[in-house]
Amino acid sequence: MAFLRISGHLVNANLFDFNIKYLTMVGLWPNDNWGRNKRYMYKVYEIILHILSVIFIIVTGIGTYQNKDKIIVFMTNLDKSLAAYNFVSKILFFVLKRKQLSNLINEIRNSGDEVSPERRYLMVIHVIIITLVSTTIVTTFSMLSQLKGEMILEAWMPFDPLKSRMSLLLASQILAINFAVPCLYRAFAIQGIVCSIVLYLCDQLVELQQRLKNLSYSEEREGLARIEFKEIIKKHVRIIRYSKILTNIFKEFFLIQNLAVTIELCLNALMVTMVSLEEKTLVASFIGYLGLALLNAYIFCYLGNELIIQSTGIAQAAYESGWTSWPVDMQKDVLTVIRASQIPLTLSAGGMTVMCIQTYSQALYNAYSIFAVLNDVVD
């Protein structure tokens, strides 16, 4: 782990190293320092993964349409395919905004902000766990489908996948190749970098709160106090700017996330009421995929909520500082900080809603409302 020593503190020089390596492995983060041939080969690799994800959407779309008369199979396929549509849409917007994100990460890396090794470890372990859990769930249900002689997901194939065990295995491998890296792992790589940046912002806001509370003023150290207060304000302004850039980059990403989890929750709830308890594997798959979708949605909403809490906490920290003994000009600056901090930093979902625990609850409520209407229609 590389570090730089700045003002007596160890500052992590490679805060997002793991996330960047993950993005690079799944074809989403080319390195500007590579030679021409390597950049060309990587571009080919990236395009191939894009094509594979599109192929997955097309073949599963055809498979879903072919089973339009079988309501349970149709809705089951639609529910499972929704994850791919969700992931591919996020990847598309990520690629379009990738250059802006690269500039933001470079600026954060060069800022000299301190991040504890524990926090960096948390950033890494989150991505690893969510990837392993997702892979385990998908692999488990794929193996169960193989044992039952069924396709885990109905899709068009240039051969009959149910003709023999080998044909079924080949079809499953084709779907896995077109889904695992092109869709699943790429989506989690993007999730990792988003969560890491939000955690970084929250940590810096907590540090600013502590610095404000500990800021002391006296005539003997007036010059030092003014310099420290100026640095606090400059960093606060910088963190606000980082937050706005992050929101601008990922506003479509969060909007797709909210819409996907609402639709998926609705479909899963509806299917559970339609599927008999004898079809335990099918019911279990609904619950497994739904749990994974809800977990991912909760992570984003929790971090968004934490960003709101820590950003508004700056106002409380400024008020709790010893500002009453400060000069009038510094008191006016404190008032400006308090007023600015009363407007929380948020993660916007397409400008339509804010990512927070309340939004998560609202998404669950909306899904249940849609489910209740559809359930009445089905009955």
Rank of each mutant, 00 (worst) to 15 (best):
M123E: 07
H126P: 00
P117C: 06
D113F: 14
S134L: 03
F93C: 06
S102C: 05
L132F: 11
L122K: 11
L144W: 12
L122P: 00
I137R: 02
I128N: 03
V115G: 01
S134P: 03
S116N: 06
R98D: 01
N110K: 12
V127D: 10
S111P: 04
V138R: 07
K99A: 00
I128F: 07
S142K: 13
T140N: 08
I105M: 04
T135N: 13
T136N: 07
M143E: 15
R120Q: 14
I129F: 11
K99P: 00
T131Q: 08
F94G: 03
V138D: 08
S142W: 15
L104F: 01
I129S: 08
V127Q: 15
R119G: 07
M123F: 07
S145T: 10
I130A: 03
S134N: 08
Y121R: 14
N106F: 01
I108V: 04
L92H: 14
T140Q: 06
L104T: 00
V124L: 11
L96Q: 10
L122N: 11
Q100R: 10
H126R: 14
F94N: 04
L144I: 12
L144E: 11
E114Y: 11
R98P: 03
Q100L: 03
S142Y: 14
M123R: 07
E114M: 10
R98M: 06
V127M: 13
Q100E: 11
I105E: 01
L92V: 15
T135I: 13
S134Y: 06
R119C: 09
V95N: 07
L96A: 08
D113G: 03
H126G: 10
M143K: 13
S116A: 09
E118A: 11
L104H: 02
I105C: 01
L132C: 11
I137V: 09
F94V: 01
R120I: 15
Q100Y: 01
S142Q: 15
S102E: 11
E118R: 08
T135M: 15
I129Q: 08
R98N: 02
T139C: 11
H126E: 15
N106P: 00
L144R: 13
S102L: 02
N110W: 02
S111N: 03
T136H: 08
L101G: 01
V127T: 13
N110T: 07
I125W: 05
H126S: 15
I129D: 07
D113P: 00
